[in-house]
Design a protein around this nucleic acid. Structure first.
Ligand code: SF4
Ligand code: SF4
Lengths: 137, 137
DNA sequence: TGCAATTACTACTTCAAGGTAGAATTTAAA
DNA sequence: TTTAAATTCTACCTTGAAGTAGTAATTGCA
């Protein structure tokens, strides 16, 4: 019952980038070192984030990564989407599927509420909301 | 962001057993067939449930499985515990760890609430509460 | 131009979860 | 006592996520 390592890394990376001076690019080595993420794995994640349009990259000397949108416009949910890990409305806690209220087991209603809160949290929390506070890793 | 297949299977198995006539044992073949769980994998799960004391088994002809406690005394959380998948208080949504309120990022407080609801749901839902309603699989 | 720094690509390895196969063990009943 | 039905054990296979390695492509700068 937790996010994949990939998603967790991605969130931490983008939050860190949002906390840095704008219009200044950060390279993979610095990210890997300060965030304690394996360099090569981070590089792979960064490429995904570039492909999905959350980050822009410049190669070569003086190159690196920059957020492609304002930190206030990147939601945690966008990041989870990139790795197909956002929570769907029909997701069932027992993995059965989508009774959609027709046949409700006792867990159904109880799962609705935390599920909704998680969706809301992911949908409404932007990088700006998170950056600058809490754990710096 | 979901339970492991093993835990989901285990919950469904025990809920089904709770819905059957008491003091009557059910064998692995029937469980596998009605719940659409691979037979051999189910057998493995059952052995775990026996070892952890939620189920008792009798081997040989006429054998099978029975709940070891009343359905109202087996909580979903007990099942998750058996597979080390219950949600710890200090579980962090970013996998960093346990800031314990000292350094709170913006996700910290928002994660607290759904986490609490999930813990409550797992802790307070018994098999009896679930059995007999909803999807029969 | 050439070099060094950087991301991107391709392919592999490792690890854990999920799943399978077959034989050993136990038991009730014929 | 034999046999068939059942669980249990041990060992393996498969799949996907996590992580690694090496090289190609790109770019700024000396
Ligand atoms: S009724 Fe229960 S099993 Fe069916 S979708 Fe809802 S939570 Fe899942
Ligand atoms: S402050 Fe944020 S990163 Fe730290 S434990 Fe809480 S949720 Fe996790």
């Amino acid at each position: 019952m937790q996010l994949s390592a990939t998603s967790q890394y991605a969130i931490r990376i983008l939050v860190y980038m949002a906390g840095e001076k704008d219009s200044q690019s950060i390279n993979a080595a610095e990210l890997a070192e300060t965030l304690l993420i394996p360099y090569k794995f981070l590089a792979k994640i960064m490429t995904s984030l570039v492909k999905v349009g959350l980050v822009e990259s410049t190669r070569g000397k003086e190159g690196g990564y920059k957020l492609k949108k304002k930190a206030s416009d990147i939601m945690v949910g966008d990041i989870l989407d990139a790795f197909h890990e956002s929570i769907k409305d029909e997701q069932c806690i027992l993995g059965i599927g989508f009774c959609n209220g027709l046949c409700k087991c006792a867990l159904h209603d109880q799962w609705m509420e935390p599920k909704f809160l998680l969706q809301k949290m992911f949908r409404e929390s932007s990088l700006e909301d998170i950056a600058g506070r809490g754990c710096k890793r």
